[in-house]
Computed example of a mutant assay.
Amino acid sequence: MADTTDIANVSKDKLVSDMRIVVADAEEILRATANQAGEKVGELRERITERLRDAKVRLQDAEAAIADRTKAAARATDDFVHEHPWQAVGVAAAVGLALGVLIGRR
Rank of each mutant, 00 (worst) to 15 (best):
G42Y: 05
K71V: 13
R47L: 13
R106S: 11
A94K: 05
W86N: 08
R69N: 14
L59V: 10
A62V: 07
A32S: 10
L52I: 15
I21K: 10
R51D: 13
V23S: 09
I21V: 14
R53Y: 05
E63H: 10
T4S: 09
E39A: 09
L99C: 09
Q87W: 04
V95D: 02
V101C: 06
A26W: 03
H82T: 01
D61Y: 11
E43L: 13
G38A: 07
V89Q: 05
A32G: 04
D18S: 15
E83D: 04
D6V: 07
L15S: 13
D78P: 01
L99N: 11
T49Y: 07
A55R: 14
V91S: 01
P85Y: 00
L15T: 07
D54M: 10
V95S: 02
A26C: 07
I103P: 03
I29Y: 05
R45G: 02
W86K: 09
R47V: 14
E46Q: 15
A24S: 12
E27L: 04
R69L: 11
A64F: 08
R45N: 08
H82G: 01
A74Q: 13
R31Q: 07
A67G: 08
N35K: 13
V23W: 05
V81I: 12
R53E: 10
A98F: 09
A64M: 10
K12C: 05
P85R: 01
N35Y: 05
T70I: 07
A62D: 12
L99K: 08
K40Y: 07
A34F: 07
A62M: 15
